[in-house]
Design a protein around this nucleic acid. Structure first.
Length: 323
DNA sequence: AAGTTACACAACCGCGGACCT
DNA sequence: CAGGTCCGCGGTTGTGTAACT
């Protein structure tokens, strides 16, 4: 029954790979391929390594056409856009960046890009009172400005809080996500005017004054008054569609405590799924089960992705699920 | 110059789903 | 169908090195 154990953990070597090990692995795979069996590979290749370790070394370092070194602005943009849409699905993000590995992107995000984003989030709303500012927390929904207007998809209802689940569900069935040649547009969320559905109340927002969140990506945001309040009747104000876009996007951010910085960052990146996980307790205190916490409807200019990408978010089955 | 801290990156670990027997 | 392994993924840790005091 079953298969043999992957390896004897007590007898395998761990830690950094030596050049000799690298060349052994490279040579073996060039001659024989992986054979579809990483567990058996190290023994055949004469390596005292776990199959998992070999696989990781090959995929992340030895494989041909791997890019090392600085990420370009375009790559930054793509990573931010994708992270904003799907969260930390590094393998999917990596699939959109030829030559980059998920591990590489993950490290890059954790060490540089996240900080870059943090530093970008500093101007403050000069128009709000201090007390008001302290009460306000920022809910930030990112939307890609990279997608051209003509890429707009049909309208559908988006429940941001469940975007992650939808995404997993849909891509795993359609298998179309990797086929797009337009990585920035594949996962673009709506950037044009749209309706926000907050605890059942509709708010229509026009995009023309919506500024860019990152250097590149577009974004729209709104304040949630008393985000952590225990009441379920909190009102969401669609603030900031003002002549002072910067203050809208980043307003209130500086008042957040360390924990909230992380929360706001996740929000800023649109990683609603992570927010759900990490702050579900706080969120659940004011989340009305019967109504979506925050939803995005419509989608004018820039909504959705192109060609293959558009099927992603505007899949009919998804729309059906929402009704 | 030595010690400490911060940073970047490689590698490991554990989990969940797919697959095999 | 049940019980087991394999594979791939994401989170975390370890290690080398640069920057700072």
């Amino acid at each position: 029954m079953g298969r043999a154990p992957c390896c004897d953990k007590s007898s395998v070597k761990k830690g950094p790979w030596s050049p000799e090990e690298d060349s052994k692995l490279k040579e073996y795979i060039h001659k024989n391929g992986t054979g579809g069996n990483w567990i058996a590979l190290p023994h055949k290749a004469g390596l005292k390594r776990c199959g998992k370790s070999c696989r990781l070394r090959w995929l992340n370092y030895l494989r041909p056409n791997i890019k090392h070194g600085d990420f370009s602005d375009d790559e930054d943009r793509i990573i931010c856009n994708l992270f904003a849409t799907i969260g930390s699905r590094w393998s999917i993000i990596a699939a959109q960046l030829p030559g980059r590995t998920d591990n590489d992107i993950k490290n890059y995000w954790n060490t540089k890009l996240k900080k870059k984003l943090m530093h970008g989030l500093q101007p403050y709303n000069h128009h709000s009172s201090k007390k008001k500012q302290q009460q306000q927390q920022l809910l930030f929904l990112t939307a890609s400005s990279a997608a051209p207007p003509e890429a707009a998809g049909p309208s559908s209802l988006h429940h941001y809080s469940s975007l992650h689940d939808h995404y997993s569900h849909h891509y795993s069935r359609s298998g179309s996500y990797g086929s797009s040649n337009s990585s920035t547009s594949v996962l673009s969320a709506a950037a044009g005017s749209c309706d926000l559905l907050v605890n059942g109340d509709h708010h229509h927002i026009h995009s023309t004054t919506i500024p860019s969140c990152l250097d590149s990506g577009g974004g729209l945001g709104l304040y949630l008054d008393e985000l952590c309040a225990t009441t379920t009747s909190s009102v969401v104000h669609g603030q900031g569609l003002s002549p002072d876009p910067e203050s809208f996007v980043f307003g209130g951010f500086q008042q957040l405590l360390e924990e909230d910085h992380h929360k706001a960052l996740l929000l800023a990146a649109g990683a609603a799924n992570q927010l759900d996980q990490q702050h579900s307790a706080a969120a659940s205190s004011f989340y009305d089960e019967a109504k979506p916490l925050v939803s995005l409807t419509g989608g004018g200019n820039g909504a959705g992705g192109t060609s293959t990408g558009s099927s992603f978010f505007y899949d009919s089955s998804y729309s059906n699920n929402e009704s």
